[in-house]
Amino acid sequence: MYSRRLELSVGAFVVLGAICLAFLALEVSGLTQAGRQDTYRITARFDNVAGLTTRAKVSAAGVTVGRVVGIRYDAQTAGAMVEMDIQSDFDAFSLDTTASILTAGLLGEKYIGLSIGGDPDVLVDGDVIFDTQSAVVLEELIGRFLMNSGSDK
């Protein structure tokens, strides 16, 4: 009645499910690289973050080093505070590091690029970067271009 074959096939079914879960975790979502590692949090203040979303990547020299975890409006400085979780492996960002909002391709998603300065002290958990470059807003850019070409005539 409870044949061995039936039990084996149910066991194989569950194992197949586990393999698929592993596949989805490792191959599809790349859990190993961006996994639940230790992180520290730094904040950057931007004048304008148009188009940036949480979970956008934070990169230095093109390498992903962390993720954006929160964006909020700061009334005191009238700017946007962007919180980023940086993986603990990357702990050598100088205090005068600058952050800029970049775009992947012409219409791609926004991400944050960090460029390291020369200060010997490094950023630690809770630090804030004020030296930033805001998002390029395409409409403004086009507007400026049109105005300039107008005045040239």
């Binding site: 989805l24 975790a25 191959e27 599809v28 979502s29 790349g30 859990l31 690289q33 961006a34 996994g35 979970r55 990547k57 992903t64």
Partner: peptide
């Protein structure tokens, strides 16, 4: 891998 997040999506 860059866009799929294990906890949020899977």
């Amino acid at each position: 891998q860059a866009s799929v997040d294990f906890w949020n999506d899977v």
